[in-house]
């Protein structure tokens, strides 16, 4: 499984949506279900999946499915299309 597939799978499990639902339009601002509690669950799930520890600034600036890929790349998790 590629990093992108793993990344998308985490989102799918946290938001309980099909994997095809996630693209550049999936953002904190436009997704009602993406509240602060879900955000923390997402962060802990990603940290566990990729064995990384995100900085507080990363967590605050996460903002979207797309931006998250860039933040993970900073921690050595390269996405194929990021």
């Amino acid at each position: 499984m590629t990093n992108l597939q793993r990344y998308t799978k985490v989102f799918s499990e946290i938001f309980n949506l099909p994997e095809a639902s996630f693209d550049e339009s999936f953002t904190f601002a436009t997704t009602e279900e993406w509240d602060s509690i879900v955000h923390m669950s997402l962060v802990t799930a990603l940290e566990e999946e990729f064995d990384i520890m995100l900085d507080t600034e990363d967590i605050l600036n996460y903002g979207s499915f797309e931006n998250g890929k860039r933040i993970l790349a900073k921690h050595g998790v390269a996405m194929e299309d990021a």
């Binding site: 940290e47 566990e48 064995d51 990384i52 520890m53 900085d55 507080t56």
Partner: peptide, 13 residues
């Protein structure tokens, strides 16, 4: 902060 984060990361690992 970075060192603390690494320390916790090590424990999780």
């Amino acid at each position: 902060a970075g060192a603390a984060s690494e320390g916790l990361g090590r424990i999780r690992k």
